[in-house]
Design a protein around this nucleic acid. Sequence first.
DNA 1: ATGACTGCAAACCATTTGCATTGAT
DNA 2: ATCAATGCAAATGGTTTGCAGTCAT
Lengths: 150, 150
Amino acid sequence: MKTPAALPTAIESRLRDYLVTHGLKSTRQRDLITQVFFEASGHLSVEQLLERVRAHDGRVSQATVYRTMRLLKDSGLAEERHFGDGQARYEPADSGDEHHDHLICTGCGRIVEFVNDQIESLQERVAAAHGFVVTDHRMELYGLCGGCQA
Amino acid sequence: MKTPAALPTAIESRLRDYLVTHGLKSTRQRDLITQVFFEASGHLSVEQLLERVRAHDGRVSQATVYRTMRLLKDSGLAEERHFGDGQARYEPADSGDEHHDHLICTGCGRIVEFVNDQIESLQERVAAAHGFVVTDHRMELYGLCGGCQA
DNA sequence: ATGACTGCAAACCATTTGCATTGAT
DNA sequence: ATCAATGCAAATGGTTTGCAGTCAT
């Protein structure tokens, strides 16, 4: 339960920029939540995040975690995902144009990220064939990981 | 608001089979909801379905629609989808091994189904590369349809 | 008759919000 | 000082459930 690592400067400056340009403030809770979030491997629910945050400061409220995650989402630093278990999960946003998708083990809950450009371009083609311009997409493969097949 | 069409026999017999083998009963409400559901084009929310059902029988409760959709889902006749607007949508299950995915227009809400075997097999390959066996997947492309790009 | 089904209202659960108070600038 | 942020509890909204009465077999 040591102090969470300082934020990478790229993230920190982008966040600071967002706060300043929107007349928002930097607070103890916001900083802590953001640090804990980026230190984690991602795919955390608010509940999980709150638990980790409270290990550092037991007085942070759930509402503040929700509000901070919305802020990170709005600022483009975090992405919200829904894997079908009823609660949102958050992960650091992809930098640049690298989009990734997910493999989810229905046995143990493990989540693996992957990138496949071939699939991406096929998606573009399919969409174009229907007259669509794609702005976003999501692809999730559910199954059993190596360990859970045994 | 005419009487909904009778169910295709394939669906009807599969449903009857499920009911019988599970000690469940056929009721006026169940039959009506099922008929209205299969007559519709799919992608209906419970709210939309209830509205249509009530056009035939105003006394059907929302709870019964929820329970019936769970039954259809459990029996494999319907599939539940979540397109990110907070409510579940249902569509007739794919027959056989034909799996389809969705293109969703963020402008007008139009939903287009498509099938692309090439993507499907690439998905299998990606999963295999990570030691996974895929049991299910979902792919949704969000964007603007031809009409909404104007 | 028996036990499943229905309608209603209350309960649930993740998430959001109103409000009085606290805190950052 | 000013105005945003916080914590708390109450509210929301989709979905589920307990229960007493109803219906299918």
